[in-house]
Amino acid sequence: MRVNKNVVLLTLVMAALMVVSPAFAAEESGNPLDTLGINMGFMISQWINFGLVFLLLTTLLWRPLVNAMDARTAKIKKGIEDAAAAANARRNAEVEAEKIINQAQREAQQRVAESQGKGEDVAKQVEAEARKQADKIIADAKAASTAARDAELAGLRGQVTSIAVAIAQQLIGKSLDEKRQKELVSEFLSNVPASAQNLGGAVEVTSAMPLEAAEQEKVKKALGASGVIFKVDPAILGGLIVRAGDRVVDGSVRNNLTNLSGRLN
């Protein structure tokens, strides 16, 4: 510690004064206050003593200690501020890092999702194909089996139908004489369905027996067509089949029989 010489000098002078000072009031005896011990000289020495103590404490205790404490407080405050700044920076960094991490995560998720989606698609495709194939196989198999069954059934039904038709043909064929043939044609002609009237253009008319000229004229008239080609097909058994382009009006016995056989089935 570097001691101020003036302070030391002052201290010594004051100490000397303090000890001497009671002498200032030495002759003041007889004062009524003396009986209470209030003595000017001692009071002066008390003041000087206080001055000394004040000097001592202020230079060695109050000032330096409070300064030191202030400095320490400032230091601590600065430290706290620094720490706060550091904490702030760290918090920012953390936020940043979190952001980055979030982004990365998002990307990763996206990628995963993508890859998952692709995989799923592929799987779906494969599955769909497999399913399709499987369906196809099943369908084929079903179709084959149905066809087989149908074929079998058709065989059976065909036989039955042929029997029935044969029976019917037997019955009908016997009765389908010429006279009956003529009746069927005239019946058809007298009752031409609306769809076969006024056909125009080229019309093909098939009949079981060749039609007479009068009959041909009648057909032409009934159909309202200009050019008619007359065909003969005994397979239709009786009646007429009118064909105009894509339209067919089937008034044949065979057709009726076929309808019957379909109804029987």
Partner: peptide, 12 residues
């Protein structure tokens, strides 16, 4: 316990 001291300090 000396009035000199206390009076001196009080005056001060």
């Amino acid at each position: 316990s000396d009035l000199s001291l206390t009076v001196a300090y009080a005056i001060m």
